[in-house]
Write a protein that binds this DNA or RNA. Sequence first.
DNA 1: TATGAATGAGATTTCATTCAT
DNA 2: AATGAATGAAATCTCATTCAT
Lengths: 196, 196, 196, 196
Amino acid sequence: MTINSDFHDRLGATILEVFSESDFHAVAIRDIARKAGVSFATIYKHYGNKEGLVFAFVDIWMGRLTDRIIDHLQGMANLKEKLRKIFWLQLDYYEKHNEFAKIIFMTLPMKTWMADESFEQRRMFNLLMDVLRQGQEEGLLNPDIDTRILLDFMLGFVQRSFIMWVQRGQKESLADQTDVMFKMIWRGIVTPERIH
Amino acid sequence: MTINSDFHDRLGATILEVFSESDFHAVAIRDIARKAGVSFATIYKHYGNKEGLVFAFVDIWMGRLTDRIIDHLQGMANLKEKLRKIFWLQLDYYEKHNEFAKIIFMTLPMKTWMADESFEQRRMFNLLMDVLRQGQEEGLLNPDIDTRILLDFMLGFVQRSFIMWVQRGQKESLADQTDVMFKMIWRGIVTPERIH
Amino acid sequence: MTINSDFHDRLGATILEVFSESDFHAVAIRDIARKAGVSFATIYKHYGNKEGLVFAFVDIWMGRLTDRIIDHLQGMANLKEKLRKIFWLQLDYYEKHNEFAKIIFMTLPMKTWMADESFEQRRMFNLLMDVLRQGQEEGLLNPDIDTRILLDFMLGFVQRSFIMWVQRGQKESLADQTDVMFKMIWRGIVTPERIH
Amino acid sequence: MTINSDFHDRLGATILEVFSESDFHAVAIRDIARKAGVSFATIYKHYGNKEGLVFAFVDIWMGRLTDRIIDHLQGMANLKEKLRKIFWLQLDYYEKHNEFAKIIFMTLPMKTWMADESFEQRRMFNLLMDVLRQGQEEGLLNPDIDTRILLDFMLGFVQRSFIMWVQRGQKESLADQTDVMFKMIWRGIVTPERIH
DNA sequence: TATGAATGAGATTTCATTCAT
DNA sequence: AATGAATGAAATCTCATTCAT
């Protein structure tokens, strides 16, 4: 069952517009339908329910970030550079697609979002875990720390920084802070002896 | 207008129980009322609406954490020890009162929660900012980094770690990871020359 | 249990003011209490409930009309004059105390009002029935008609006229129409042979 | 947006049943919905609120009476007969549909009912006024009396008689009293010289 | 397959009335 | 007695979702 591509585009645009500004439950599916020019019943046919609708699109947008990271990592050997690139790509993507980021970080009920075992979330998780694990195997990243903790360390910083960036008015570029921020992360995860 | 203290206690317990397990909007105020043995009309009279109800209690619990931090910092001079203590107190409090933490980190719509300019949130913010600023003034913490970024660094890690701890089944103690985690934080924020 | 006379007066004034303008159920007893400067709980102590409150006062005001009719009938012998006087007294009283009349004719749920077997309603009923019966016994009023129908004939006209007088803006005096209106009534109830 | 005809019928029946027996405000819309087998949300969608619901049906039933009067007046020339017929049709309709009559005369807050400027109320009003005016123009009805007063005279008697008929237990037929009652009305409104 | 009507649930508000002080 | 807090019921509105066309 494929939906008319035009509808799909309009739906996506509407979801970004509406869910980025209002709490998940404050959004009426009828408004989405009206703005997108579809009947709400059609949405139900295609996506099952409100959660299904949003997650379907979130999955797509998350997939694009993962794809972009994979693409950029090609041909890179230096692990630190890889990690810095990953860090920058995230800040950059969330900044450029801040409506998407607002949805996953701010308006989706975290509980629901965490519970969503989507393919794309897992793919992103695996991708990052692989890089970090590789770094630990190479002895570059602190092998005494559970790899998942390394990941939480990075992602927690990214997520909190994005939220506060929005909170503080989206003034200067978020990605421009990559340097400062990544230095902090790197010192935290590098094998202590290699810190300099 | 003060509510009977017994009611207050039962309400608090019920809110912890219910909101920690269900999405904010999935909770019916009538159920809260029934479980707490209060009339829902009374709840409305006192708290205005569902948000007001939850925030009133969140404020109280957040205030207790702040108080505890203030209490523990008394008589401590060493800044690193202070920060480690703050870090531990947070993990410990969120672990022991994980229902409260689930509410603020997982079930309250983040947008709403962030928008809530409560006294207690601000008090906690100021407390932590003061300690970090003091560290920068002493030259111990990296003075080149915006103090707010230092804060986001710590809090992002705490928040993400808590969420994942829940996600991963609340197996081992969260506070027990203070050592590993705080080392990462410390290396990230300390003035580079003093890293050893 | 007697209520402070001052309270009583203020309550009465408030009831006239409020119930004459709003539907019985649209009036909040708290508003009554506030306007009268009493606690609503005190009202309950004295009058039981909202109905009891209004009926208590309606009874008083109805009693005054009855008293006035009795007073005016003293020393009158001519039955037609008596009836005309009764007719005029009603129009005049309802016009002068139109807030009271609005309450009994327009805002009290008729069903409730009819069901109220108050002493004063009965006293008024008996008074009018006695006069009409007397007229029939004298042969002046049509003896072929059930006395109660004679009464309905008069009272229906009074009530409808009052309501329409209000509806049409309370322009000219209602009591001033006594002449025209009573002629119609009289021709309808007089024994046919005596119509001239 | 038309409501399923079956629903409409069941709703109408329920409204007659419930509102004729209870005070307007004592009726819960949810009970109406349950009895009629409709969702109360559907009721709100169609009728806006409780008043809208009742008035919508009252309008229909009032329209039927008006239609019936118009139908019966066809081909009648004698004005007195016309008026007697109108009088009888009203008593007959209210007796046969006494639940409807109870609603408009006894349970609807008169204030609200009077304020309702519905098409059907106006149509009935115009119809009756036309007949009375015609009678005055022909010289048959007393031309010295405001036509509206003639109308109030008739309708006041009808309304009061209906209410008392209910009050007294709906014993004998109401319509059967047309003869006695109409004679009273007629003598009251006929041009005095033509009274015999 | 697309649509809108119908539904049921819950938030919120406003009362009348009861309860405890 | 007098008072205000607490209660329970209902109106109203707004949704997400299901059903029938």
